[in-house]
């Protein structure tokens, strides 16, 4: 009996960890594309809030979480377009415009909620989808194959992003634009266009990460629902060295630590709760500090592109 309880607890910790990693994974993979093209978008948190609201609102009124997902992707794309307009076309300082976008997203999502919903309202969100056969595998089945569709999407996006980034010509262009935009430009790559595309794709994923919180987790909306997750996602891009697998590792490390500390608290294991709640952050910082090697970053990150000048 004791042994069964233990394996059930471990399964619960790991399955929860995978679930908790999903919003970080989605938002960080999106931000990875954005930064790979040479733009850092600090507005992820605000885009997530807008995506969270859009997903919630569409699900509430149209009755389908899948339409909620689509709504969050559209809103994410619009927010990305706005960021691209400001930071690529108008060449505004990226850090400042990102913070502006964050505040805009926070304010607007709260306002729209107050105007069109108001009060705590719950929705029927995404349900867990058991994958036939795979979900029957002992131990691994309940951890990986009994989650909702956005969890699978996020996990599938890791190899997919890797493929797009390293094996397609578009991915090559993105990397070129983020490292040597002048060289890419001379070779006929449309730098502005690539950056627009990356900001839009990245923001769509941030919107999806927000929708995961409302329709995949909470099944409701509240002001500031993201509670800092967007900023953690940005940190995870650095942690993951702008690579999908690195981001997966960082997201899982952070979320597993979070899931583990929750269970430690719940089981009443004698451990100060203040230390427990900061455990995920400590683990991430320590891992970042001890990982060695030359830190590589897209060379043109943060620099607006101006044809005819050298970055």
């Amino acid at each position: 009996m004791e042994g069964v309880m233990n394996s059930a607890i471990i399964i619960s910790i790991l399955a929860t960890g995978i679930r908790l990693a999903t919003p970080y994974l989605l938002a960080a993979l999106g931000e990875m594309f954005t930064q790979r093209s040479g733009v850092y978008n600090l507005g992820v948190e605000g885009i997530m809030m807008m995506g969270a609201f859009a997903g919630f609102f569409a699900t509430l009124h149209l009755g389908s979480p899948l339409l909620g997902i689509i709504a969050s992707l559209i809103i994410g794309a619009l927010m990305g377009l706005l960021m691209a307009l400001v930071s690529v076309t108008f060449k505004a300082e990226q850090g400042i415009s990102g913070i502006g976008l964050y505040m805009f997203g926070w304010g607007l999502s709260g306002l729209l909620y107050r105007l069109y919903v108001g009060g705590i309202t719950s929705i029927d969100g995404l349900k867990e989808v058991k994958i036939p056969l795979l979900s029957n595998i002992p131990f691994l089945g309940p951890i990986f194959f009994n989650q909702n569709i956005l969890v699978y999407t996020a996990l599938a996006l890791v190899p997919l992003s890797g493929f797009i980034l390293y094996k397609t010509s578009w991915g090559l262009n993105v990397r070129a634009v983020g490292n040597k935009p002048e060289a890419a430009d001379t070779l006929g790559v449309n730098v502005v266009r690539i950056r627009y595309e990356c900001l839009i794709v990245g923001s769509m994923l941030a919107g999806l990460a927000g929708a995961f919180l409302t329709i995949g987790q909470a099944n409701m909306y509240a002001d500031n629902i993201t509670a800092g997750r967007g900023f953690i996602a940005i940190a995870l891009v650095y942690f993951g060295r702008w690579s999908p697998w690195g981001i997966l590792l960082g997201s899982l490390l952070f979320s597993m630590a979070d899931s583990f500390q929750s269970m430690v608290q719940v089981l009443g294991i004698n451990f100060p709760y203040e230390l427990a709640v900061i455990l995920p952050y400590v683990v991430t910082i320590v891992a970042l500090a001890i990982s060695f090697g030359r830190v590589w970053a897209p060379a043109a990150l943060g620099k607006p592109f101006q044809r005819g000048t050298r970055g």
Partner: peptide
């Protein structure tokens, strides 16, 4: 009957509170 107390470390993280409740229930 046992009482199990766990904290999220936040006052307004409804997603975090939901996840902690799920952990409580799974235990």
């Amino acid at each position: 009957v046992k009482t199990r107390i766990a904290y999220t470390g936040s006052f307004n993280d409804i997603v975090g509170a939901g996840n902690l409740a799920k952990t409580q229930m799974s235990a």
